[in-house]
């Protein structure tokens, strides 16, 4: 069986159309992951033991249960408590909230590595706590945590393929369908891999640019 570029050329429009859903789910999921992950991280580091243990529980649940199960729960179990989400929203929420648990841990690791002396010095100088976070802690934490964050966001893009179980025709599902029609798994899957790669490459390049921008010395 020789490699058929014809098959690829023929099916590329369908794959690209499907990639749109992959992009939509992962971009919205990333937004939730970053915002909610920051909140979780702050909660986890808070002085109040109730909030701290609540955040720890959240993180261990969302890291411990496979995303597939979470996705099914969001789509099939939430309607029982009166929250009937459309498939795309359910997929975005599930991936975002799961990824937020990982993001929170990455940010916590990064924040903890900033020497305590800096915080103490800032207090001694009378810098208000908002400026301390905005100007001193967050920029450094982002710089330290950026490679791990990009890792996590790339995994999020790939994990969006699970959204097919709630009936979204994203890239992997369409690739499977086309393979079923054409019996050309190698060509189709390699094309799908190249599309995933293109999405992820954009992500990691932006990650490196941000890292460079925040570089010191």
């Amino acid at each position: 069986m020789n490699f058929s570029f014809d098959t690829i050329w023929h099916n590329l429009p369908y794959l690209l159309a499907a990639a749109r859903w992959t992009v939509i789910i992962s971009v919205c999921g990333m937004a939730i992951s970053l915002v909610w992950g920051t909140v979780l991280c702050a909660t986890r580091l808070s002085a109040n033991p109730f909030w701290r243990s609540a955040a720890t529980l959240y993180i261990s649940f969302f890291r411990g249960v496979p995303l597939l199960v979470q996705l099914l729960l969001f789509y099939y179990a939430l309607p029982y408590v009166g929250l009937d989400l459309p498939a795309v929203e359910a997929a975005i929420l599930a991936t975002g909230m799961c990824s937020a648990a990982y993001t929170a841990e990455i940010l916590r690791g990064a924040l903890q590595s900033i020497p305590r002396g800096q915080t103490e010095a800032a207090y001694a100088l009378g810098i208000p706590s908002f400026s301390l976070w905005r100007r001193i802690l967050v920029p450094q934490a982002i710089r330290i945590g950026m490679p791990s964050l990009v890792n996590e966001l790339i995994l999020l893009v790939k994990v969006s393929s699970l959204a097919s179980v709630v009936g979204i025709s994203e890239l992997t599902r369409i690739a499977q369908n086309i393979t079923g029609e054409t019996y050309r798994p190698l060509e189709i899957y390699i094309t799908a891999a190249v599309i995933y790669f293109a999405i992820n490459w954009i992500l990691s390049i932006s990650g490196r640019l941000i890292e460079k921008k925040l570089q010191i010395g």
């Binding site: 890291r63 411990g64 496979p66 995303l67 990982y102 841990e105 990455i106 916590r108 690791g109 990064a110 903890q112 590595s113 330290i144 945590g145 791990s148 890792n151 996590e152 995994l155």
Partner: peptide, 17 residues
């Protein structure tokens, strides 16, 4: 090891699945 232990644990967990 301070900043990377948490991401390392994350990734070990991801790999289990």
């Amino acid at each position: 090891l301070v900043p990377i232990t948490a991401p390392l644990t994350n990734f070990f967990i991801i790999l289990t699945k």
